[in-house]
Simulated assay, not measured.
Amino acid sequence: MNTDLFLIGIDGGGTGTRVVLGDAEGRELAQATSGPSGLGLGIERAWQAIQAASNEAFRIAGITPNWSRCVLGCGLAGVNNRDWLAEFRAQAPSLAALAVESDAYTTLLGAHGGAHGVIVALGTGSVAAVLDGKDEWRLASGFGFPSGDEASGAWLGLRLIVHAQQALDGRVPFDALAQALLERVGAQDRDGLVVWLCEANQTAYASLAPVVFEHRGHPHAANLLSQAGTEIGKIIAALDVSGELPVALCGGLGVPLREYVPSQYQARLRAPLADSAHGALYLARQEAARVVAKFAG
């Protein structure tokens, strides 16, 4: 390995960017964060966020940045849009090497340390992936809000708010769950709720997810959590027909939803070994090894 290189793992999404700076062997030197770098928010903005976080990591490590000595491994939201990906590569600074994959893939690498396994990432949205025994990886779920992203925060919130709607109409009793939902959205009556609904996006619906866990004993909330667990089970089954690979539930809802995963999958559940940024560092190390092997050959 060329010891003059630095490896940078980048986890970029719609809410923020996390980077892990490593030496040529992948040993961690520093971490830093910055604003969002999901490609859907703009390519120039993505590179600005990546460079800001990377420069901060270098500052923390006490090293002067030199992009020509950097190998970047990027796990980014939006790389499935080939036009965005091509533009992202075209706008890259002068680097030693660049590897770009879906953030689902880097989450997969981080969760299982590059070994075979399944991840189900559960946050505002959801996506799942597998690295199988043939060293091939593929995705499931992640089709996006509002029709997809099963078991995500937005998926739960979209269904949970129905209880408040029906309670205001008298179709179901006005109870503690309905009151909690109205307080969360800042509404006091039907008109106020309609205003919130007309403005609500994926993030707004996901903000209701804590309410479903706070009221997990309520029949409506309990049913939603059970449905979420069932959907997670269906995803696992679709990705691993062998029924043998370890499964990591990742993201902010990974731990809260674990108990709702069907019993036949419980024994295979594992805590993630590392996060997507560290998975991206692993990706950078793989890319650096390819570059070194190319020049050595």
Rank of each mutant, 00 (worst) to 15 (best):
T203R: 11
D189N: 10
A221D: 02
W137L: 00
V172A: 00
L139W: 14
F145E: 00
R138W: 14
G192C: 05
F143D: 11
G217N: 01
S126P: 07
I119Q: 01
A204S: 15
V172T: 11
L131S: 10
L122Y: 04
A221S: 12
A151H: 06
S152K: 09
A204V: 01
L208H: 03
G170V: 04
S207N: 10
V162D: 14
V120Y: 09
G144T: 08
V162I: 15
G123P: 05
D191L: 11
E199C: 12
G217K: 07
W155C: 05
L193K: 01
H218M: 01
F143L: 09
L197F: 00
L224P: 00
R171G: 00
F143Q: 14
A128F: 12
E214Q: 15
V127N: 13
Q202D: 05
H220L: 10
I161N: 06
W196F: 11
V120D: 04
D149W: 04
C198D: 15
L197E: 08
G125V: 12
L160S: 05
P210Q: 08
A200P: 10
R138Y: 13
V194F: 10
H220C: 01
A222D: 09
L208Q: 03
V162P: 00
A176D: 15
L225R: 05
S207D: 15
V130N: 09
L160Y: 12
L160R: 08
R216C: 00
P146A: 12
F174N: 08
V212W: 02
D189P: 11
H163P: 04
H215G: 10
F174K: 01
R159V: 07
A129G: 09
G192N: 06
Q179M: 11
V185P: 09
F145P: 00
G123L: 09
V212L: 02
G170R: 06
V212H: 05
L177K: 12
L160K: 07
I161M: 04
G192D: 09
R138D: 12
A209V: 03
E214R: 14
C198L: 14
G186H: 07
H220A: 12
D169P: 04
L156H: 03
L122S: 02
Q165K: 00
G133C: 11
Q165D: 08
W155L: 02
W155N: 05
E199P: 12
G144Q: 03
A176N: 12
V172S: 05
V195D: 13
A180S: 15
V120R: 08
W196E: 06
D175C: 08
N201I: 03
L139Q: 09
L131I: 05
A187Y: 10
C198A: 10
R184C: 07
N201R: 14
F143P: 01
F145G: 07
H218K: 02
L197M: 13
Q188D: 13
